[in-house]
C-alpha cells in the first residue's frame, strides 16, 4: 500500500493512516550520528559530499546522540571503543537504528584472526539493523543500505502483531 490510500479530485483532501504518515515523516528525516572509526568513515564522508549527496534522503549529521535516529558504525570497532560505542547507543532516543558499514564492524574484517584488540562484529554489543558488506563499501552501497533501512522504517507498526508478547 502506498502512502496515499485515497486522493480526492477536488484537491486539499487526502486519506491515509496515521502510521503511514508517521513512518513517512520518520524515514525522510533519519538523522545520523556524526562519527567515524576508521577508513570506512572516509567513504561515509564521500557519501555526504556533493557527488552522492546523502542529504537528499533527509540525512543530517548531528553531533549529539540525543538528536540522532541512526548510528552508522563506519570502521574498526576496537574493544576500547566498544564500551564507548555502547554508551553512545544507549544515549540515543528510541526508536533508534544501527547501520553496520564495512567488514570490520560486520565481523572484524581484516583483523578477524590476529586483531587481539578488535571486536569481531559490532552486533556483539549493539543490535544491528542493516549490514553493508565491503572493505570499504562504496558510497553507493551506503545509499543502498540507507534505502533498506528506510524500507524497514516504512513497515514499522504500532499495532501489536499476532503472536507478539505484550
Amino acid at each position: 500500500m502506498g502512502l496515499l490510500s485515497k486522493q480526492f479530485d477536488d484537491g486539499n483532501i487526502v486519506l491515509t493512516s496515521v502510521e503511514g504518515v508517521l513512518n513517512w515523516a520518520r524515514l525522510c528525516s533519519l538523522w545520523q550520528m556524526s562519527f567515524g572509526l576508521a577508513c570506512c568513515a572516509i567513504e561515509m564522508m564521500a557519501a555526504s559530499a556533493s557527488h552522492n549527496d546523502i542529504m537528499r534522503f533527509g540525512v543530517l549529521p548531528r553531533p549529539s546522540p540525543r538528536q540522532c535516529d541512526v548510528m552508522i558504525v563506519a570502521g574498526t570497532v576496537t574493544l576500547k571503543m566498544a564500551t564507548r560505542l555502547k554508551r553512545l547507543y544507549e544515549q540515543m532516543a528510541e526508536p533508534r537504528y544501527v547501520v553496520s558499514m564495512g567488514s570490520c564492524s560486520n565481523c572484524g574484517g581484516p583483523y578477524w584472526e590476529h586483531g587481539y584488540h578488535v571486536l569481531k562484529g559490532v552486533d556483539r554489543v549493539v543490535p544491528v539493523d542493516v549490514y553493508i558488506p565491503g572493505c570499504p563499501p562504496r558510497p553507493e552501497a551506503l545509499l543502498e543500505g540507507w534505502m533498506r533501512l528506510q524500507e524497514k522504517v516504512r513497515d514499522f507498526t504500532l499495532v501489536k502483531q499476532e503472536g507478539e508478547h505484550a
Binding site: 574493544l79 566498544a82 571486536l119 569481531k120 554489543v125
Partner: peptide, 20 residues
C-alpha cells in the same frame, strides 16, 4: 602485553568475546 611472542589472546574482555 600483546606484542610479546608468548601472548595469549584473552577469551573475554569486559564481558565481550574476543576471538572470532
Amino acid at each position: 602485553h600483546p606484542l610479546r611472542k608468548d601472548y595469549q589472546v584473552p577469551e573475554f574482555y569486559n564481558g565481550m568475546k574476543v576471538p572470532y
